[in-house]
């Protein structure tokens, strides 16, 4: 954004900035909101055992915060904040974490996804297992949602602006 005309009076200045950047209000408010949305996502995830919430909801909320960032600041900025390689890793890591929890319980002498054998105390074993698979769900859902948005967002539209 270039500097406004120096001959302008002080009362004209805000209007000049607003004319150059019509989305300034959106930018300011979303800069305030995006960290809150992300923190809320993590709260929903880690408090999911005690109240409504869990990996699925938290994954979608985290993805929504990145999508909001991309909508306001552009897709290239969002790709610098949440790079595409992280998506590829996250997608597979989530499924592997879930399946891996099952395999670990399998190797420790229980059935596949039987968390009771993960610790000597069966109850803490259940807790460990649920925490691990919820993390896997969080990784997979967040990455897939952001991947889908990136795929649609970076496709070049063939229609012209006159169609709007």
């Amino acid at each position: 954004m270039s500097a406004p005309d120096p001959k302008m009076t002080e009362s004209e200045l805000p209007h000049a900035y607003a004319a150059r950047d019509p989305h300034v209000l959106l930018r300011v408010i979303s800069k305030f909101l995006i960290p809150l949305i992300a923190i809320f996502g993590f709260y929903v995830h880690f408090h999911g055992e005690y109240s409504a919430g869990g990996g699925f909801q938290a994954g979608v909320i985290l993805a929504a915060s990145v999508i909001l960032y991309a909508l306001i600041f552009g897709l290239d900025e969002a790709k610098r904040a949440f790079p595409p390689w992280l998506i590829r890793v996250g997608m597979s890591l989530g499924v592997l974490l879930y399946g891996g929890t099952g395999v670990v319980s399998f190797l420790k002498g229980g059935e596949f996804l039987n968390y009771s054998v993960l610790n000597e105390n069966a109850i803490s074993g259940q807790h460990y297992g649920i925490i691990a698979i919820e993390l896997g769900v969080l990784c997979a859902v967040t990455s897939v949602m952001i991947a889908i948005f990136y795929a649609f967002g970076s496709r070049q539209p063939e229609t012209s602006d006159e169609d709007w």
């Binding site: 869990g54 649920i130 919820e134």
Partner: peptide, 13 residues
């Protein structure tokens, strides 16, 4: 399972 949210317990365990 000993967590209060039954939905999470059923979903995960």
């Amino acid at each position: 399972v000993q967590i209060p949210n039954v939905v999470t317990a059923v979903l995960g365990s």
